[in-house]
Design a protein around this nucleic acid. Sequence first.
RNA 1: CGGGGCGUAGCUCAGCCCGGAGAGAGCGCACGGUUCGGGUCCGUGAGGUCGGCGGUUCAAAUCCGCCCGCCCCGACCA
Length: 403
Amino acid sequence: MEGFAPELAIVTHGGGKKLEEPLAVRPTSETIIGYMWSKWIRSYRDLPQLLNQWGNVVRWELRTKLFLRTLEFYWQEGHTAHATREEAEEETMRMLRVYEDFAVNEAAIPVIPGRKSESEKFAGAVTTYTIEAMMGDKRALQAGTSHFLGQNFAKAFDIKYLDRNNQLQYVWTTSWGLSTRFIGAIIMVHGDDQGLVLPPRLAPIHAVIVPIWKSDDDEARILEAARQLHQRLKEEVRYRGEPLRVHLDDRDHLTPGFKFNDWELRGVPVRIELGPKDLDAHAVTLARRDKPGKEGKETVSMDALAERLPRLLDEIHESMYAKAKAFLEANIHEPETYEELKEIVRDGWALAWWCGNEACEDRIKEDTKATNRCLPLEQPGGEGRCVVCGERATVKAIFARAY
RNA sequence: CGGGGCGUAGCUCAGCCCGGAGAGAGCGCACGGUUCGGGUCCGUGAGGUCGGCGGUUCAAAUCCGCCCGCCCCGACCA
């Protein structure tokens, strides 16, 4: 845990008195979990173990960034202990894929799964895996991590079990986490100049009904129709197995135009406009947040709406993912020379042959501020020459400026 | 902690370099009218210790010094 020493917050006073023994505020929970496991685990029959928790942790960052790097953050962290190395490694990869699946299929964020280099990995890990995402400004963000901890923590906390042959063995452990930082990723990947653009599957409100009227007569009938529509959609429409999250904006004294902009700012994926013309035609106008103006509008019959909305939400999800994916791919380049790399990382990611030496990572960082984000799991194969030193290289790494 | 920048109305800022009459704009807010299918428009009005303290001067938002706060860059890091 020495790697964490500089970023520990230490409590020296409590209850109005100086503490006899200072308390470290946890930067992650391996030590707590490890301590308990050393008491709980006695036999191979106790394995494997899986503990998951949501909790706040504190790391004394010298420089913070809203959402992306805060002194205190809330996260999900999981810990497992296994009898064999293979099982622990399998779990590490399984969770990496869970995070990747969440990013892609819930948040519509494309990511590059990969392994961290020695200098970039978690201090207590044997191997650290990451999903790296590209923000709208082309900087990289580590959006989730999964660690194979080997027997490091088992040895540090004396976590041993008796195997089938009555032999005392150390366990193999893993840990993995995803934090509120991910909210920052959603904002920075999808957001535009009008405000938030929320991926449909995570949006607190799927669709908002905006009633439109001119005269008092219209107001009465439109509002009544809007309320009925709201009720019907809530009761009848399901998206991904759950009731549609639909909201009726019946606020008075605000113009429709104001409401349109207001909900766009808040990133609601679908707006349902209901005005006199729509009502007379027994229809509504749908507008999707990810496509501005007329391009994102369509007229749908009231009768077809229940069927249309879930499909539209899926279409928005796919479209948002495709757009982010295209952006990611358009901004990853493969430099042949160091000069090319330096140019690329000014405004994009470089996927380049790397010999594995920290000295070459350091050189890049000094020259360009770009760091080694990961060694993608998906490799081109073959071998090449390190983009920095020219020595033989068997892997390509992603170098980019990161948050 | 080092380098740079900024503190003027609820918010975003202009004015400061080159001191001078009642300290301004847009947004927001209140009231009246108008409008309502893309942030309506017009009018009237309320609202300010010009970050704080001290100095220079006949006169300071403006010049000088110190202090406080915030932002950006660097060192740390998910």
